[in-house]
Computed example of a mutant assay.
Amino acid sequence: MTFLWKKWGRAIRPSGIADMNKGQANDPSTVGIARVLGPTLVLVAATERANFEIWQSADPAIVYLNGLFLLVGGLFVVTNHNQWRPSRNLSITLAGWLLCFGGAFRMAFPQTRQLGEGTVGNVVIGTVFILGVAICMLGAGKYNK
């Protein structure tokens, strides 16, 4: 719901209240972000699953750098598409926040043992993969008609 106030005879929107049309499935910015973010998440999930063992002996500087890249990517998504209404494109916002938190964790604790091959690691990687596939479908135009 959008809140409008009257000022000098016209309706104004207070800062921080998003335009209701922005972020819809057919919005060019939503489709553009989905076309980049979806395949990226699918590839990241697939390659991290295939290479779980590298994170067990990774240099903390590499883990920190990986976290920095994840955080920057997540902040880009969150600042350009922070839509919390229940809709298909909520997955883009959730992916952005997932990247932010994952990146911040890796930056804050680069020497901590990262997720390994196990139930929790497989669930996290599987969730990222499924989220990436859903975002790919959003960006490919399945829901943009």
Rank of each mutant, 00 (worst) to 15 (best):
A50Y: 04
A58N: 06
V31I: 09
W55D: 09
T47W: 10
I62P: 02
T30H: 05
D59V: 02
L41K: 07
T40G: 14
G38E: 06
P28H: 08
A50R: 09
V63R: 08
T47E: 06
P60Y: 05
S29H: 15
T30W: 02
V42S: 04
D59I: 00
R35S: 01
T47D: 09
P28D: 10
T30F: 06
T30G: 05
F69V: 09
L43P: 01
N51W: 12
G38N: 05
N51L: 14
V44S: 09
R35T: 03
S29W: 15
L65K: 13
L68Y: 03
T30P: 06
S57R: 08
I33P: 03
F52Y: 14
P60C: 04
V36Q: 08
T47I: 10
A50H: 09
A50D: 08
N51K: 12
N51E: 13
V31W: 02
Y64W: 11
V42Y: 04
V31H: 00
L68T: 05
E48R: 14
A46V: 10
D59M: 04
L70M: 13
I62R: 07
D59W: 03
E53I: 10
G32E: 14
T30L: 03
N66C: 13
D59L: 01
F52I: 01
L41I: 11
Q56R: 08
I33L: 05
A46P: 00
I62F: 12
P60M: 06
R35V: 01
G32Q: 14
V44H: 10
T40M: 15
E53D: 12
A34W: 13
Q56A: 11
N66Q: 14
E53A: 15
Q56I: 00
A46E: 01
V36G: 11
D59H: 11
R49Q: 03
G67Y: 01
L41H: 11
G38P: 00
P39V: 11
N66V: 15
W55M: 12
F69L: 11
E53H: 14
P60G: 05
L41W: 12
P39F: 10
A61T: 02
A61S: 08
V42P: 02
R35D: 00
L41P: 11
P60T: 02
D59R: 05
F69G: 13
